[in-house]
Design a protein around this nucleic acid. Structure first.
Lengths: 336, 336
DNA sequence: CTGAAAGCGCTTACAG
DNA sequence: CTGAAAGCGCTTACAG
């Protein structure tokens, strides 16, 4: 059962492929094709279930109308929501999105990037990993339509959209200080990526400014050993340092943290207050509810698409800035 | 900055495009091309950063090496894990996966299906929604490589992989009965899809077989009103019927259920025992932990890919059956 | 051992 | 008003 092609239709109605193409692309009147022929072609195409071969169209037009989206991990709530909103927004502009997870593995990330290029995507939306710097720079240098999300490379001039990490951590720290906590720990991961650096810096600044707390208490979890060893690192740290509040720098650290806190039977917030970066069903449903800094996921997605569309010449609304930071939202629950 | 093409390389080394193509596709020795030319071509291709235009390759070969995956909702944990494993498995066979969410909206589902067809995907992996029956049948009739997942249409002869829904609910019900619960309610959604029918039937069978409980207690949540009204329906039902145990038929119902139970301050498992279909971080971290029937997500994904690969003629291991049910895993936690 | 040619299914500038 | 032709970037059967 072969697919119906333009040629098949042309043969059937006795017209040339070009005429059929014009009609099917809505250029019948522009090409002053008779209504009779037009209707005949349209009817035949419908009857035979004609669907254009997009691969051929893409090769010919040089446009695939596909955007490539690379996230860190699609099974992580934050990235899943991001992907979903991006998909919706892209659809408004007639683009489809293909997405893949880099798993924060630079080799995989680079391979995926090449794959997207080979597939001729029209634009790139990327949450870059450590080793992707060169490839991203290449894209930027070649003026490929591109937006980075969640993080970026300070040395590379490329558009990006991320949450205001510094402001977010600041807000969270202020909240803890106001509540009277005096021994606030910060649990993050080993990572040279900018978004983690910004969060850590904001914690350090807050401590430097604080009159009640002089000592910084930072744990950098080494995640390469897997869940169990990560939990061990956290419990060890909590037992040894005995903070009265803890700030988790990412949502998965927060989840690991809750397990750790449970493992050593600390009571939240009596023994230990908890704040986490990123909201999540888990934090909302947890007893007690966990205070979080919610990222403006929809706004990040929408802004990223708008910046990309501008590069593709499809902007409805012109975007002024192409390096954007959006404010996070402090949601106070019972954990603080 | 134009992309480097085969022709460019051919011109540069002074060979014909065909020769370059053979070399780049590893057929140099087969075509008895001199090592000298081969190395020159390879070096030039590398230096110029040549990457084949997959769109052209696809058009020519008729193969895109892309699989289309349609899930209900990529931001739902179950589908996200499914997608992730499918991506990994597909990679083993040299295929990429593009995925999209139908949102259980038949119109969107059908559109996405057409889009995949237009993009010439080599095979389809689909969790079908209600209105997709005709389109799926069309694919099956045209002998397109296809596997349904999680659910299927009884009237259509097509390969599928799903969890053994009946066996799973049976297991859960037996567990509750053994624990001595005598007023077990079942909370599900209005849906004609087979997987929901199977789960409900298994509940009814269990009650029919039971000596302790004669009355069936079923709530079919109408989800169209959104979260809040769904929670209202559940709380009303629980207050009115006062079951001693409740079985949630899907993970999102379970999450809504936990919110409902909290809203009316019931204590788990003292006032009410809870079992849920599908595992989830939330159920694991909840206090008390929620007893679940965990779907064998990895096995479902792997089986689906193997069945699809067999249709595509890439099977390493021949698959015997192409309509498969896999057993769920009862994980007992503190909620029962 | 290597090259010229056809063709995948479209779109579009050109000719009539 | 409509058609023939070129071409997007590849692969591969054919010729020499």
């Amino acid at each position: 059962m072969k697919r119906v092609s333009l040629k098949d239709i042309a043969k059937l109605v006795g017209a040339s492929p070009s005429t059929v193409s014009f009609i099917l692309n809505g250029k019948a009147s522009q090409m002053r094709i008779s209504d009779e022929l037009k209707n005949k072609v349209l009817a035949t195409a419908k009857k035979m279930g004609y669907q254009p071969n997009q691969v051929a169209v893409s090769l010919r037009t040089g446009q695939t109308k596909i955007l490539g989206l690379l996230v860190e991990d699609i099974s992580n709530n934050f990235f899943a929501s991001l992907a979903k909103t991006i998909e919706e927004e892209a659809e408004e502009f007639g683009y489809k999105v293909v997405y893949s997870s880099t798993e924060n593995n630079s080799k995989k990330g680079v391979e995926l990037l090449r794959m997207l290029t080979q597939r001729q995507v029209d634009g790139y939306l990327i949450t870059p990993t450590v080793g992707m710097e060169e490839d991203i720079e290449m894209l930027a240098r070649h003026k490929k339509p591109l937006v980075l999300m969640d993080r970026y490379f300070p040395g590379i001039e490329a558009p990006y959209v991320q949450v205001d990490n510094k402001g977010a951590v600041e807000k969270g720290m202020e909240h803890l200080v106001e509540k009277g906590y005096k021994k606030i720990a910060f649990i993050t991961i080993e990572s040279p990526m900018i978004q983690m650096r910004q969060r850590e810096e904001a914690y350090l600044d807050a401590i430097a400014k604080s009159s009640a707390q002089k000592k910084k208490l930072i744990l950098k979890v080494n995640y390469s050993g897997g869940r169990e060893t990560a939990i061990e690192q956290i419990t060890d740290f909590l037992k040894k340092q005995q903070p009265d509040a803890v700030f988790f720098a990412t949502n998965y650290l927060g989840i690991l943290g809750l397990e750790s806190i449970r493992a050593i039977s600390l009571s939240i917030p009596k023994d230990l207050a908890v704040v986490c970066f990123d909201d999540n069903d888990i934090f909302r449903l947890h007893l007690p509810g966990i205070t979080v800094l919610q990222q403006p996921v929809e706004a990040i997605a929408r802004t990223a698409i708008h910046i990309l569309m501008q590069q593709l010449g499809n902007s409805k609304v012109p975007v002024k800035k192409n390096q954007v930071q959006l404010a996070a939202n402090l949601i106070v629950r019972q954990s603080t």
